[in-house]
Design a protein around this nucleic acid. Sequence first.
DNA 1: ATGGCTACGATCCGTAGA
Length: 254
Amino acid sequence: MKLASWNVNSLRVRLPQLLDWLARERPDLVCLQETKLEDHRFPLAELAAAGYTAAYSGQKTYNGVAIAARTPLAEVSAAMPGFPDPQRRVLCGTWNEQRIVCVYAPNGQAVGSEKYEYKLRWFAALRDWLQSELARHPRLAVLGDFNVAPEDRDVHDPKAWEGEVHVSEPERAAFRALLALGLSDAFRLFAQPEKTFSWWDYRMMAFRRNAGLRIDQILLSAALAKRCTACTIDKAPRKLERPSDHAPVIAEFG
DNA sequence: ATGGCTACGATCCGTAGA
C-alpha cells in the first residue's frame, strides 16, 4: 500500500503533472492541497480515466483539498466539528479500513498577525478533532501541508528563519501536540538524507540552492506506523516546467 | 536593499502564498 500527499498549488494548472505522476508512482491514495477549484470544476473524469475516484472540498482561488484513491472513500466529511470555517482545509474519509485525513494548514503570514492567531486556533481544533477520530479509528493517517517545519533540521537555514512563521515555537508546539496524541511523523521513522525538504520558494532559485523547508508531512497512528516501510519526498515533479512549489510525500506499507 | 516567483481574479495591479 502506498499513500501520498501533494500540495499542487492549483489543480487546474497542475492536472497534467498530477496525471503523469499518478501513472508513474501508482499510489493507492493521494491527498491534494491548494486545489483552488470550486467543486463543480473538479476534474473527476480525468482522474477516473486514470483509475482514481475522488472526494473533494474546494473553493475559488484559495485553499481546497481532495483525496484521490483507487477505491471510493466512505463516511466523508469536510469539516472539523466545533470549528466552522469557510476555508476549505480539511477532508477525511474511511478507506481500506483506515481513517484518512487530508489537511491544508493555514500559512499564518507573520508571527503575531491575525492570520497567525487563526493558524494557532486552527491547530488547536485539529488536535481536538484528531483525538476524537483516533478514539474511533485506531488506524489513522493524517496527510498534508502542515505549514510547520517541526525542527531546525527541517529548515535550510535555521538562523535566518529563527522565530519566523512556520518555525516559531508556538507553531512547533502545536505540531508536537499532534504527535502527543500518539501520531508519528512517518518521515522520521527512517534514516533520511540531511537537508531533505518538501517546499522551495519560487524565487531566488531556491530549489537549485535547496533552500527549502519540510512542511508537508504524513502522520501515522501506532497501528499504521508499525506497518510503514518507507517515507520519502519525491523531488522529481519540482524539477518540471511550471512546477508546484511543493513536492509530494510518499509513505509505503508492508 | 523586504525585493525576488506564481496563481488568481480583477484588470493592465493587488492579494496571498511560505
